[in-house]
Design a protein around this nucleic acid. Structure first.
Lengths: 330, 330
DNA sequence: ACCCTGTTTGTAACGGGTTACATACTTTTT
DNA sequence: AAAAAGTATGTAACCCGTTACAAACAGGGT
């Protein structure tokens, strides 16, 4: 690989001049500039980004941490972040953490040592304490972990209320909830939203809340159990779409008809909900917007670290599909 | 951030000694080593990977290029690559290329400038010519682009033959094929496998081959068209699962019953095929194994670049689910 | 007493860019 | 005509680890 010194020699100038041409700053005579550019082309010279990073202390990379790349929510989000960061000349690094604290810390350290310029994190286990020694800006997504750290979220509680109220409005009499991991703040908020609506209902019972982990499999198993024990449940608000699809399959395996016997509503609005039969009613998050806003805010934070903390909350939308249906009065 | 010089000063040794302690090579007196380790801890020193990379000319990063992160096939693959590379102390970079040649080249250049140590590529547009100036090892996945570049693939043609023959064996009389983008070698091979079986059938007609692009949406539309025009089609081999799910939904929208009226078989074996109703019969690829083998081979190639080119071909497996059914004789 | 090998540590060059500062010449301002 | 501002370019330090090489000393073998 040719270096800047090779170029300088061939063009008969100093490396400083070549650098000025490369970065288009400082004074360079236009004739000199041409000579340098010719040399660059002739040698197929490409500046070494590592050397540049070392001097600048910045790598032009940003990282996104997601708990589960197999949940279609996150590829969607990743696309958004990728689009924005690429647009601004950053390289995008995607890290899958499995919601595993050690893995998160390992990645955080490894990438900090690589002078990564900023982090976008979807994490349930990270809190301020772990980030004390991280000097690059961080933004939390989907889940919020400190008022000192910028975040982009949706109104989870309100969305959950809306979902639950919707089930009531179509005539569901006993509404259960499959919740996500209680370490995740969004999961807690969705549970709260559900409780806001049903807490004082006469039929309500804590058995109607069962714990999932945002994955398909757990939900499938937990739901089979729930629906076998409580045959009178006629509405189910599930904390995310992936688990809601597990519910659909669980009901199918029990020969329960959705939406005739049971109405199901999810949360997220991932494309997966369009591929099931019945298609999935859900609370749709503006996934792409969440990702792109987060990326934009992070990039601003990188350029202006003194800037104050921003918490942005986006709105969710109820999407009615075929997994819910108005219940006829008995 | 503390530097190696700070540590050296505090421990009263030279930077060389600190470096020896850090990398555990060369001679260091055990007492000195303790002193250095204490200083490291006291200063919370972490070596700067960028400086290290600059000197070594290697960044301990490897990159995976995928055409569409939203296709669940690729997150699965990414997990495999991530697991292996992390295990060997590499940082994993995931790049979404949209099958866009320019984006691929841009990524390739950007990452080469960052001294990325190797590339795993799923690409339809890259050929040897574009890689001439890339000095780090490359392995192609899923698709094969040159005999000089190592690859890990599956036996696409054989799998396609198996799929098509299976449809015949359960009594399908007219079998159509939705193919993938014809730029992709795996897509071409799957078409060939289909043709191997049906080419000389009396009923065969080129109308029975329709072009998709491996995405859900195209397949949904194209299939509605196909099934409307050719109502006698009773078997459909679809080049990947994502499109096969599109077929399921298209048939649903036309009020066609799967598998009663039409048997559908996909290719890939992604988890999505388990969430549809009916669940999807498919040719399953060992996705995780493909990814992890590719990563392993790449890491070997990085350590021993002189090593000869390897082409590994893995086997696929037919998984019978509910989207296919033996056809009763009329 | 001498040589050889092994141990311990330090000095300084190196990797490849960037930029503060110095120098020198040209043009503009007053 | 002198001072100031603008243009053009080079020198060398700097970013921060790594390592070749040198130096110095201990212990073993002959």
């Amino acid at each position: 690989m040719a270096t800047i010194r090779d170029v300088a020699k061939l063009a008969n100038v100093s490396t400083a001049t070549v650098s000025r041409v490369l970065n288009d700053n400082g004074y360079v005579n236009s004739e000199t500039k041409n000579r340098v550019n010719e040399a660059i082309e002739q040698l197929r010279y490409r500046p070494n980004d590592v050397a540049r990073s070392l001097f600048k202390g910045s790598s032009k990379m940003i990282a996104l941490f997601v708990p589960d790349i197999k949940n279609p929510f996150f590829p969607e989000l990743a696309r958004a972040v990728e689009d924005v960061t690429n647009q601004y000349g950053y390289t995008f690094v995607l890290c899958n953490t499995d919601d595993n604290h050690e893995k998160e810390i390992t990645y955080l350290n490894a990438l900090t040592q690589k002078s990564v310029d900023g982090f976008i994190m979807v994490s349930s286990t990270i809190c301020e304490r772990h980030l004390e020694h991280v000097t690059s800006p961080i933004i939390s997504l989907d889940r919020r972990f400190s008022s000192n750290i910028s975040s982009v979220t949706v109104n989870n509680r309100k969305g959950a209320r809306e979902a639950t109220a919707y089930l009531q409005s179509i005539g569901c009499k006993k509404i259960a909830h499959i919740c996500g991991p209680q370490t995740a703040s969004n999961s807690k908020d969705r549970l709260k939203g559900y409780l806001d609506v049903v807490k004082y209902e006469a039929w309500f019972h804590s058995d109607f809340i069962v714990a999932g982990d945002y994955r398909f499999k757990s939900s499938y198993e937990v739901t089979k159990d729930l629906l076998t024990k409580h045959k009178d449940i006629d509405g189910l608000f599930v904390a995310n779409d992936l688990m809601a699809v597990g519910v659909l399959k669980a009901a199918e395996s029990l020969n329960m008809n959705i939406p005739e016997q049971l109405s199901v509503i999810g949360f997220d609005g991932i494309p997966l909900g369009l591929t099931t039969t019945p298609s999935l009613t859900t609370i749709q998050q503006p996934i792409y917007e969440i990702g792109s806003r987060a990326a934009q805010i992070l990039l601003e934070l990188i350029d202006h670290p003194e800037q104050q903390v921003i918490h942005e909350e986006l709105e969710v939308t109820l999407i009615e599909r075929d997994s819910t249906k108005r219940r006829e009065e008995a």
